[in-house]
């Protein structure tokens, strides 16, 4: 098991009388990417802000073995972050931003490295007021990666990035992960998060509803097989009579529960003189799992209506 670079215990946060975080506890390991998932207002950004001492909270935050509090947090030297939207001074160039926050020796080479990694050379020396949303986002990400942090917090890092930039960022995150950097990433683009995150924390209304790994969550998902036969109406009838769970009205889509199901389905159809002309597999993705977790009632109702 890798070393915990971040440990959060019993984090509570209230705005006035409204409690927005309820006893949040989790940890992030070095060299692992943790996805923080939840609906708008679930408390993702508040958790990140509390870890970064941007907002006061009760509970315990330990980073790289050192306690970090609202008033005293020297260990944040080891943390890079992009929260909500990039923090940009419009009167400064991108390089000025990196110079401003660079610390330690070899500043110039570190700045050049991050500029190269994110392919920002074309505009890094122009004033940030002229940057597009994507350029600003890249600069915010670059600032998060500055000073070789041991742990990086990224809040919606793919916002405004084009496909090329998204891939560059994904590659950079994976490269840094491989070097041992720990990540806590929130994103509404769940397909992207699915490509990155190894561990998942799913929160709803300020509470952790599930803490799992991406593999375990996806394994527990529903799997479907869609078949096309010479007589789909009869095929549906035959499969229903055989006890298979059919999903959807138009196509012959069957929910499967084991690897053997597909062979048995094909055998059943074949036995009933229904030649299969096409077979397609479909696995529920992270988005489906999250939606199911965050609103199980809606999901159940949806299945009933099918």
């Amino acid at each position: 098991m890798a070393e915990a670079v971040l440990t959060v215990k019993n984090l509570n946060k209230s705005f006035g009388r409204k409690q927005v975080l309820h006893k949040i506890s989790f940890s992030c390991q070095s060299g692992r990417i943790v996805g923080l998932v939840g609906a708008n207002g679930a408390g993702k950004t508040t958790i990140m802000k509390a870890v970064l001492s941007l907002t006061s909270s009760t509970g315990e935050v330990t980073i790289d073995g050192q306690k970090s509090t609202f008033d005293h947090h020297p260990v944040l030297d080891e943390v890079g972050a992009l929260i909500e939207y990039p923090s940009i001074y419009p009167f400064m160039t991108g390089r000025d931003h990196l110079k401003l926050f660079a610390i330690g020796r070899n500043k110039a080479s570190e700045i050049d490295d991050v500029i190269t990694a994110l392919n920002m050379g074309n505009y890094i020396d122009t004033k940030a007021r002229s940057y597009s949303l994507g350029m600003k986002q890249k600069l915010g990400v670059a600032m998060a990666f500055l000073n070789n942090p041991k742990f990086v917090i990224l809040d919606e890092p793919m916002n405004g990035l084009d496909p090329q930039a998204t891939k560059e960022l994904r590659d950079l995150i994976i490269a840094k992960r491989d070097e041992g950097v720990g990540f806590l990433i929130s994103s509404h683009i769940l397909s992207e998060l699915q490509k990155l995150a190894e561990d998942l924390i799913i929160i709803d209304h300020g509470k952790i509803v599930q803490e799992t790994t991406m593999d375990a969550l996806l394994k527990s998902n529903n799997h479907f097989v869609t078949v096309t036969t010479t007589d789909d109406v009869k095929a549906k009838q035959v499969l229903a009579d055989a006890g298979y769970k059919l999903v959807g009205d138009e196509e012959v889509k069957i929910q499967t529960s084991s690897d053997d199901d597909v062979a048995n389905i094909l055998k059943t159809l074949n036995d009933n003189q229904l030649p299969v002309t096409d077979v397609q597999h479909e696995d529920e993705d992270l988005e489906g799992s999250v939606l199911k977790l965050l609103d199980p009632e809606d999901q159940e109702q949806g299945e009933k209506s099918c």
């Binding site: 970064l52 001492s53 947090h73 020297p74 260990v75 909500e84 990039p86 923090s87 001074y89 419009p90």
Partner: peptide, 19 residues
């Protein structure tokens, strides 16, 4: 006020230094 206006207060305060 510019730190709040530009959102840069987040970068300033999430460094090692106290308020």
């Amino acid at each position: 006020t510019m730190e709040t206006q530009y959102g840069t207060i987040k970068s300033v305060l999430s460094q090692r230094y106290s308020r």
